[in-house]
Amino acid sequence: MGAPIIVSALFGDADFAWLDGLRRAHYPAEHNRVPAHLTLFQHLPPAIEPELRDQLSAATRGMPSPAARVTGVMRLDRGVALRVGSPALDEIRAQLAEHFHGLLIVQDQAGWRPHITIQNKVEPSAARALADTLEQAFRPRPLAIAGLAAWRYRGGLWEPLSRHRFG
């Protein structure tokens, strides 16, 4: 059986640099195996790879980038994430979920809470301290979503499968 497939949004270059910088600064280095990301699906079966590529191409080809915003700080038990709001990206994900209905794991069937994890696997007190600091300075801001990507999950590492740009 092949490795499961992850689907994520691709950020614009400036937003990726900002988010990945936050992640590198606050995520424990020994656990930080992938760059900053916004996951749409965390476990799709490898057998659907050709169909998934077609669906991701159809969702992005000739389509404008979905408007998105970083809307707040999300506290995790042992980390911190940034909330993302994007009705257009929500709709794209809902259409993909409907298309692949019956193939989704429980976590991917549950309600989607779009976020970008910038810290995880730390002591709760460290997570609270970072969340407090970020909340004090937080201002909502636009987030450039440049495309969608598929990745093969390789035991913590992500192997690129395909990238699909909007526009």
Rank of each mutant, 00 (worst) to 15 (best):
A110I: 01
R69D: 10
H101A: 15
D54K: 13
P87M: 09
S86K: 07
P87I: 09
D15Q: 03
L96Q: 08
P64D: 09
A17V: 05
R154K: 11
Y27M: 10
P45I: 08
G21N: 06
A144N: 00
I145Y: 00
V122S: 03
L143D: 00
A149G: 08
G79T: 02
W18A: 12
T117I: 06
H43L: 08
I118R: 01
F166I: 01
F16K: 04
D90C: 12
R78H: 13
W151E: 04
I5C: 03
V80D: 01
H101Q: 15
G85K: 04
A127C: 07
P28R: 11
Q109P: 02
I118L: 13
D54A: 15
P87F: 10
I48V: 15
R83I: 00
L40T: 03
Q95W: 07
E91S: 14
I6G: 00
D15T: 01
L40R: 04
A14D: 15
F11A: 00
A97Y: 05
G85F: 06
D20S: 07
T39C: 11
T117P: 05
H115E: 06
E51H: 12
H101K: 14
E135Q: 15
G167R: 11
A36N: 03
L40N: 05
R141V: 07
E135M: 12
M63H: 13
E49S: 12
L52V: 08
A68Q: 01
P35H: 11
R75L: 11
D13S: 14
L104Y: 13
W112M: 10
K121E: 12
A36Q: 03
A68I: 00
L44E: 08
A129C: 00
V106L: 14
R69H: 10
L82V: 02
G72C: 04
P66D: 03
E49C: 07
A131D: 04
A137H: 12
R93F: 08
K121W: 06
L82Y: 03
W151T: 04
G21F: 06
P46K: 03
L52N: 03
S125Q: 12
L52T: 06
E91F: 08
D77E: 12
V106Q: 15
T60E: 01
M74E: 13
A3C: 08
P66M: 04
R61W: 07
A3N: 14
P64F: 07
L89G: 05
S125P: 00
P64S: 11
A67G: 13
G79Q: 02
I105L: 14
R128K: 10
G102M: 10
Q107D: 15
G111E: 15
L89R: 02
V122Y: 04
L22S: 04
G167W: 06
Q136W: 07
Q55L: 13
S65K: 06
A110D: 14
L82S: 02
L130N: 02
A88I: 03
A59Y: 00
D132L: 09
E91G: 13
Q119M: 12
A25E: 14
A9F: 03
E98H: 15
R33P: 02
L161Q: 09
T39D: 11
L38V: 06
G167H: 10
T71Q: 07
G79K: 02
V34K: 04
L56R: 05
L130A: 05
